[in-house]
């Protein structure tokens, strides 16, 4: 039989056409973030967040200075305690500012809702936290690579564990204010205050590879929470008659 067969290119085009008329492939997290970045730019992603970020940096620097200077023998424990400070404070300050914003409701009806923008910001804040942890680890371990890796891995571990758990508990206990601060206090600060030397000994002996692994797993879980935050559909608090 003399049939005209389509070329591979034509087949590919036909398949693409059929697919374009059918169900749309959901965007990946990175594609969504990239599209948001292109549409808004950093200026609008961080709109009105500069003062919160400034305060969080100030608190973080203060905490690093106080903890490292007052307890020189507890370097690892201090690094573990200080690593999430920027993230926790900037998260709480920006979230509170947005929820109290007069434009909150309107922003929730736009193509890019403030909840999605907040998810983007949180990811950026964790990356900024990583940069701060790196700088602080370089500061305490500038003489030796071994002295750098331990505080660095512990800082990342603390940062991503705290980041993941903060987002998780914010969702789970929405009505309790400042849960991330309570979490940070319980997970990062209390062990230093109560078990000072034992805690430092434990952190200085735990294998660096293990802390990197925990940090990696926590980072993956954190990204999963970010994905959920991008897709979540929730009512905006409103009471009848208001």
């Amino acid at each position: 039989m003399n049939m005209i067969r389509p070329s591979d290119e034509e087949k590919e085009r036909a398949v693409e056409y059929i697919l374009s008329k059918g169900l749309k492939k959901p965007k990946s997290l990175w594609q969504e973030l990239y599209d948001m970045y292109r549409a808004l730019g950093l200026r609008y992603v961080f709109y009105d967040a500069a003062s919160s970020m400034g305060i969080a940096v100030f608190v973080m620097i203060g905490f690093y200075m106080i903890s490292l200077m007052s307890s020189e023998q507890y370097t690892n424990a201090s690094m573990f305690a200080a690593a999430p400070v920027f993230f926790i404070f900037v998260l709480i300050l920006t979230e509170t500012a947005e929820r109290m914003s007069v434009l909150y409701e309107l922003k929730m009806t736009c193509k890019y809702t403030i909840r999605q923008i907040a998810a983007f910001r949180i990811l950026c804040f964790s990356l900024m936290g990583t940069v701060f942890c790196t700088l602080a680890s370089l500061f305490v371990g500038y003489t030796d690579i071994g002295d750098f890796l331990r505080p660095f891995s512990l800082s990342l571990c603390a940062l991503f564990l705290c980041s993941f758990l903060s987002l998780y508990i914010i969702e789970a206990f929405r009505k309790i204010p400042f849960t991330p601060v309570l979490l940070w206090f319980a997970m990062n600060l209390l062990p230093l205050l109560f078990f000072g030397e034992h805690w430092e000994n434990f952190l200085s002996r735990v294998p660096i590879a293990l802390t990197f692994c925990v940090a990696f797993v926590a980072f993956v879980l954190f990204i999963t929470e970010i994905k959920k935050l991008m897709k979540i559909k929730r009512e905006v608090p409103y009471y009848a008659g208001c």
Partner: peptide, 8 residues
Amino acid sequence: NYLAALKG
């Protein structure tokens, strides 16, 4: 302009 950006 800000809201236009949020509206994509």
